[in-house]
Structure formats: structure tokens, C-alpha cells
């Protein structure tokens, strides 16, 4: 596996490199950008923003709600024991269990979605450079058809170009 990438000291030069790659015909999906922090105010960071996570979390919450309703009702009916003059299926207390499992379902669904869609965990990062953690921003392309084209597009003042 080969890759060509460059490290940039700031968001502006990284943005220029991304624009260069786009001009050279690379789609946004083919360009890899890696940063040590979220860079909310740059255009290149605005990719892949849309997510179904909110809906999946709601669905997870609904599953939690339904399973809690089933669990409480089923177990109360399975061996009906009377306590304190309350009905066998007492919805007031069951609602508390249902609330907690709704929230648990939502949280777990959101976290699972996050792990799956963010591609975690994985054995080793495909394209990576430890210098990212010192504030550098990596822009690169995995398995480029023509490395020279990529290098040319990545050449922006301040860039350090690397190949693997």
C-alpha cells in the first residue's frame, strides 16, 4: 500500500492543498485529512458531517422502552405476587424502569453508531503521522494513480511532503 501525503502547519495551507487536489481531479472521498483537533472553521473539515446517529439513538431508545415494558409486564404476570394492595402490573413503578432503559438504549445505540461509522476500533491507521499530535494537519491520498500529480497539488508554502 502506498500513499502520498503532506503535513501543514495551519488550516489555511491545508485548505489550499485540499483545493489543489480537488482541482487535480480527486474527489472529496479520495482525499484524507487528519488533524489532532477538530477544525470547525475550515471548509475541508465540513465533509461527512451528516449522520443518522440521532435517529439511530432514538430507535435505540425505543428498543429500550419496548424491552423494559416487556420485561416488567412479563415478569409481573409470570409469577403474580401481590404486594401492598397494588395491581399485579403496576405501571407507575414500571414507568421508572422504562425511562431508565429508554435512556440506556439511546446512549448505547449512539455509542455503537459512533464506533461503527468512525471505523473504530481498527488495528492500525492506514494513513497517519505522529507529528499530527504536535499540531500539524495531514492531507494526503491513499494509493494514488500518479504520485507526481498528487505531490504537485500538495506543494503549498509550509508543506512537508512524505511518501510511504
Amino acid at each position: 500500500m502506498s500513499a502520498v501525503y503532506a503535513l501543514y502547519p495551519d488550516g489555511e495551507s491545508a485548505q489550499r492543498a485540499v483545493n489543489g487536489l480537488r482541482a487535480a481531479g480527486f474527489s472529496t472521498g479520495a482525499i484524507t485529512v487528519i488533524s489532532g483537533e477538530p477544525l470547525e472553521d475550515h471548509e475541508f473539515f465540513d465533509v461527512n458531517k451528516s449522520t443518522w446517529m440521532w435517529y439511530i439513538a432514538s430507535a435505540g431508545g425505543f428498543i429500550g422502552l419496548a424491552s423494559a415494558a416487556w420485561l416488567t409486564r412479563m415478569t409481573e404476570v409470570a409469577w403474580p405476587l401481590r404486594t401492598g394492595n397494588m395491581p399485579i402490573v403496576a405501571w407507575w413503578p414500571n414507568m421508572i424502569v422504562m425511562f431508565e432503559l429508554t435512556m440506556l438504549g439511546g446512549i448505547v445505540a449512539a455509542v455503537v453508531t459512533m464506533f461503527v461509522t468512525a471505523g473504530l476500533p481498527r488495528r492500525r491507521p492506514a494513513l497517519y503521522d505522529p507529528e499530527i499530535m504536535d499540531g500539524k494537519i495531514l492531507v494526503g491520498v491513499d494509493n494514488p494513480p500518479d504520485a507526481a500529480v498528487v505531490e504537485r497539488a500538495l506543494t503549498v508554502p509550509g508543506a512537508t511532503i512524505k511518501r510511504t
Binding site: 484524507t32 487528519i34 446517529m53 471505523g119 473504530l120 499530527i132
Partner: peptide, 20 residues
């Protein structure tokens, strides 16, 4: 867990954090 730091990962992390 093999964290890279792509915009997608950052966005997902932040969405998960706001939902939670």
C-alpha cells in the same frame, strides 16, 4: 483503538457526545 483524526471521526465523536 486505531484513532486517526479524520473529519468524519471528529464529527461522529462530537455527535455522540452531544447525544449523550
Amino acid at each position: 483503538l486505531g484513532w486517526q483524526g479524520t473529519p468524519k471521526q471528529w464529527h461522529r465523536l462530537e455527535s455522540a457526545m452531544s447525544i449523550m
